[in-house]
């Protein structure tokens, strides 16, 4: 990130748009492969985060804002999502606590 404000032109935006469409194509292709549910989820999530990162930095211009803005916003969101993920496996315990259906 730089503090300079050289936002890309429409040609660059179109190239980014094509790139995002290609990632969507890869995601769709992955569903036709016989990946396990966990494997497919992991692969799709990685690609979705790459897409989101590109949209955040270029379409939403976060790359061209002062670094203060990025460091104030993004780590906070990542921390909250990480904490959600941290307590997430505890939800599996509830499945085992459930009274079995006869």
């Amino acid at each position: 990130m730089t503090e300079t404000n050289h936002e890309p032109g429409m040609k660059e935006y179109v190239a980014i748009w094509v790139g995002l469409l290609c990632i969507v194509g890869i995601e769709t292709f992955l569903t036709s492969m016989n990946l396990s549910t966990h494997g497919l989820l992991a692969a799709l999530l990685i690609l979705a985060f790459i897409e989101a990162g590109i949209a955040l930095l270029y379409f939403m211009h976060l790359k061209y804002e002062k670094p203060n803005l990025f460091w104030s916003l993004v780590p906070a969101v990542i921390f909250v999502l990480f904490m959600m993920n941290h307590i997430w496996p505890d939800a599996y315990r509830m499945v085992n606590l459930r009274v079995p259906i006869q």
């Binding site: 995002l20 979705a48 989101a52 949209a55």
Partner: peptide, 9 residues
């Protein structure tokens, strides 16, 4: 951006 997660998931 949200749709980029909703569509695959």
């Amino acid at each position: 951006l949200v749709w980029m997660f909703v569509f695959p998931l």
